[in-house]
Design a protein around this nucleic acid. Structure first.
Lengths: 234, 234
DNA sequence: ATTTTAAATGTAATATATACACTTCTATTT
DNA sequence: AAATAGAAGTGTATATATTACATTTAAAAT
């Protein structure tokens, strides 16, 4: 039986995941990359990727790739862009949809990491990547910078409890420039989206820094009423 | 010969174009839609679309579809999003990448329009669309609103020469709310991106309104030096 | 000369963003 | 028990950007 669309060509379809993590100690943004143990491009660095199957949506495929690499689900992820140049993959024509994910670096089990050949690499010192993966990373970085300005997604990169210093360091790591401490704190606290905890972080100072939690429900409520998150600075 | 990827499934891949136009006289944003003269969904309204071929990139496919419908090239177009739900097209599994384009309504030859079954339809009064095309349109509209705020793309919807009244009307049509005349003019003129012409538009008033042109070169120059376009209002 | 219609114009009030340096807390050392 | 050291925490004045708002100008038509 000939299908109505059967005269049209078919293509391999892949997803690639740009997985961001934030290292609180090193105050650096990182990417989860794969040292490939298979062909093509064995031994080279790449993003986590996989082919889209018949029984899964694009989003499902991206989740599958992300989950199987990290062992985590319910992570923040969104579609970034679809790369469709004819020869972007030298192995065959493959169209790839890139997704970017934000995860807390500490959430990732080192065992699973090892098993999958996954490594955290600093944004400021990335290895060469296969195909057009560098292009994908650059676009994802731009998107991340724009996104954290006006949506409260930065919190996805931090643990549930975090200090204002840690939050500021995160923004500085993303913006790649210093942020004024008093203005930053004034701005974020004035939004009343952070719940101050009764506990202090005591690793990095004698005095200790108060922990806060992001209140998602409060954000949703405010957003419904026309509130706009904004941490664009300098 | 078995290829290295040959165990993976292949998929139909399409592009769909959300084509925006602006009607100066009616002060309304419009979409170029197709009344389908073929199966599936004969007689229903849809976006302009087509299947991606082996010898063309995604972008090329989108350009081909846009060109063959409008007879125009070098139009403003950018990729919007890729829709990959399994059953989004009832005919077969088809993954579709949506693009959105901005064109001057007047640029379009009515003959070519007729030939292709293409019609301009007001955004405020759209017919039902096939598949997930309404979802695509909604996303494109949001993207357009965000885009015209911070990039000078609105000019793509106007003729080369336009008046400040026309420009303001365009922004009001996109934002769906009134804009203060004096503040709008102050803001756009202060950017010094518009070249005042020595000619007036005389259709709509006795006094006549001065024509302006958008100076792309000046914008590029300023943008290189860190300037940010901004016409966010109210 | 008068009327009519849309284009063009400025200023004051408010809100937001920026620049900037000292005090507080507490564990550790003496 | 006092002194030290190191990071956390805090406020104000200035500059910039946004908003609100009403009258005058130009020119064709009567």
């Amino acid at each position: 039986m000939t299908h109505i669309y059967s005269k049209h060509p078919k293509h391999y379809l892949a997803v690639d995941c740009i997985i961001f993590g934030y290292d609180i100690a090193e105050k650096e943004l990182k990417l989860l990359l794969i040292k490939r143990s298979f062909e093509p491009a064995l031994g080279q660095w790449s993003l986590a990727g996989g082919f889209v199957q018949h029984d899964e949506s694009l989003d499902d495929a991206a989740c599958r790739v992300l989950c199987s690499l990290t062992g985590l689900s319910d992570l923040y992820m969104e579609q970034l862009y679809t790369y469709g140049e004819i020869s972007r993959d030298p192995g065959a024509r493959v169209i790839s949809t890139a997704y970017f994910a934000l995860i807390g670096i500490h959430e990732l089990d080192p065992e699973i990491q090892k098993k999958n050949g996954a490594h955290w690499r600093s944004i400021s010192n990335l290895p060469d990547l296969i195909f057009d993966h560098k292009k994908m990373v650059d676009k994802a970085l731009k998107e991340l910078i724009d996104k954290v300005k006006v949506y409260p997604v930065g919190f996805e990169l931090l643990p549930e409890k975090f200090t204002l210093v840690q939050l500021q360091n995160l923004y500085e790591a993303i913006y790649l420039r210093p942020v004024d401490k008093r203005n930053f704190r004034k701005k974020i606290l004035s939004m009343e989206l952070l719940d101050k905890q009764e506990e202090k972080e005591r690793e990095t100072s004698k005095k200790g820094a108060w922990y806060y939690r992001f209140n998602l429900e409060k954000y949703k409520e405010l957003a419904r009423n026309g509130f706009f998150f904004n941490l664009a600075v300098n």
